[in-house]
Structure formats: C-alpha cells, structure tokens
C-alpha cells in the first residue's frame, strides 16, 4: 500500500497506542489499585516496573523464553513488594517515603544488573493478529494484540469481582476502609496488607515485562517515562475501581501516542505541552470531582493514615 493514511492515521495510532502503550499502565494501575485498597500507597512501583522490565528482558534473553521472563519479572516485583510491605507497616514509617526510597533502590538494582542486557536482543512475546488477511499493513500492525494486554483485560473485571464478591476481597476492603472493624473481624491487618502489596507489585513487575518484551520491546535505563509514578495518580483518577483503571490506562496509553501521530500529519507546535496533557487532565478531574463535603466514592478510608 503506497499511500499513507493521512488523518486516518491519528485515530488509528490512538487505538493502537491505547493497546500498546496502555498495557504497562494497566498492570501497574491494577497493582496499585489492589495496594491502595488495602490502605497503603506504593510509590515504589516505578522501581518495581524498572526491575520487572530488566528481569523479564534478561531472563528472556538467557533462557530464550519470554514467558519465563514474565514470570521472573512478577517474582522480582514480589520480592520488592515484600520489602515495601514489611517496611511500610512498621510503626511510624511512612509509606510514601518508603515508596520513594524503593524507587531509588529498585532502579538501582535494575540498572546495576541490567548493564549486560542493553545491547543484546531478547526473544519478544508473540502477538496475536486480530485483523483479517485483506487489510492494509497499517491496520494489521495496529491490531497486533499482545497476550499480556488480553491478560490485563481479564484481570480488571476479575479484580472487581474479587473486591465485590469474595471473602478475601472483603478482607482487603475492610482493612483499607476501617482497620478497627477488620481487627474486630479477626483479620490480620499486617498479613492482608503484606499480601496485597506483594500481589500488586507482582502485577507491576509484569507491567515492566510488557515494556521490555512487548512494547517498545527493549531494555534501556530510560524505558519507563514515569509510568510507575503516574499509575498512582491513575488509580485515584479511576476511583479505586479496577474497571475504571482499565479505561483510564487505555486513555493514558492513547495520550502517549497522540503527540507523535499529530506531528506526523502536520501539527507541530507545543509537543511538550501535549505530553503533559494526561497530567493536566487528571488534576482537573480531581479538582472537579473532589469535594470537602463528602469523601470520594470508593476511597479506602485508611489511605494516607498512619495505621
């Protein structure tokens, strides 16, 4: 197909970008959602994301199996999560501070051990081709779907169901909303939070794997442009609802694609400001929807408290 798509390229890029660029957001925000539901914030997911990306790439390269890489990334996340979970629950230790220290520690670990893996090419995750055989290559490329994206797509409703309808989900919500009530129920707050944070970090590690093994599919030290930190805002944007996390991740992913694709059809000015659009949007939505008179629907009551 010799002719380009022209302006049709913009919506196409956004659709493709939502799926490609949204996948890491999706995993990290679901992980953060689970973590925050239990009443703790984990800013350290940025470090977890980087460690996950490095581990996945390294393991995939060394073993030749990207699936093993994904598993390893999740496990690496689990380990970092256990540090955060344990430390942030100590008396007088603030979870935001631990998170930022974990960003430094996690990225340090990722960069330290990731040096040998920058150069080589690791086997990438296979993608599923949803398009028929008689579409243009552009559409075909846009419809290359990663199994990781589908996995994330499945986890979101599953997590919603988990919160709403399972006993364990109830425990997590109780611990996050009102630790006193949870204690009265005989639930170990420490254990529930520890497991939630570890599971959340596991997901964030997989989010990192999707960066290095799917899109953009490399391991470099600048692979994450703050997705881990943004996920924290994204969860609030999504009101701690896993399904809205899904939509919000797609939105943020699409926004990443907007800048470059607009330039390629001739819009040139202000790409730095374009790139800041998701942040401005999140802030505006927070300003509009928050109110001092009532608490947000879905907000875990114990979030940001020192207990």
């Amino acid at each position: 197909m010799a002719e380009g798509l022209g302006w049709w390229g913009v919506p196409l890029a956004i659709v493709a970008g939502t799926m490609r660029g949204g996948t890491p957001f999706l995993f990290v925000s679901l992980g953060e959602c689970l973590t925050e539901k239990s009443g703790k914030i984990n800013l350290g997911l940025e470090g977890t994301l980087l460690t996950g990306a490095m581990t996945a790439y390294g393991v995939s390269y060394l073993t030749g199996s990207p699936w093993l890489g994904i598993l390893a990334a999740g496990l690496a996340g689990l380990v970092l999560g256990s540090i955060h979970g344990w430390l942030s629950q100590q008396f007088r230790v603030n979870d935001v501070a631990v998170g930022i220290a974990m960003i430094i520690f996690g990225s340090g670990i990722a960069f330290f051990f990731g040096k040998p893996f920058i150069q080589p090419s690791a086997p990438q995750l296979p993608t599923l081709n949803l398009a028929g055989s008689n579409v243009s290559p552009a559409v075909e490329a846009a419809l290359q779907i990663s199994p990781l994206f589908l996995l994330g797509l499945a986890i979101a409703p599953l997590m919603k169901w988990f919160f709403q309808s399972t006993r364990w989900g109830l425990y997590v919500r109780a611990v996050g909303d009102s630790p006193d009530a949870a204690r009265a129920m005989g639930v170990s707050i420490f254990k529930v939070r520890m497991l939630s944070i570890m599971a959340g970090s596991f997901l964030a590690g997989i989010g990192g794997a999707s960066l290095s093994l799917y899109y953009p599919g490399v391991w470099t030290e600048r692979i994450s442009s703050g997705q881990g930190l943004m996920a924290v805002a994204l969860v609030i944007f999504a009101r701690w609802n896993p399904m809205i996390c899904l939509w919000a991740s797609l939105l943020f992913g699409g926004a990443q694609a907007l800048g470059p694709s607009l330039q390629s059809v001739g819009i040139k000015q202000g790409y730095y400001l374009f790139n800041a659009a998701p942040y401005v949007l999140t802030l505006l939505i927070m300003i509009v929807t928050c109110s001092p008179k009532r608490t947000l629907a879905g907000v875990p009551g114990a979030l940001g408290m020192d207990n």
Partner: peptide, 13 residues
Amino acid sequence: DATVLVFQGLVFL
C-alpha cells in the same frame, strides 16, 4: 554508575 543508586536506596530504607 548505578551503584550509587543502590547505596542511596539501602541507606534510606
């Protein structure tokens, strides 16, 4: 160069 990050991270934790 990442060593100093690990150092900083450990001390802070």
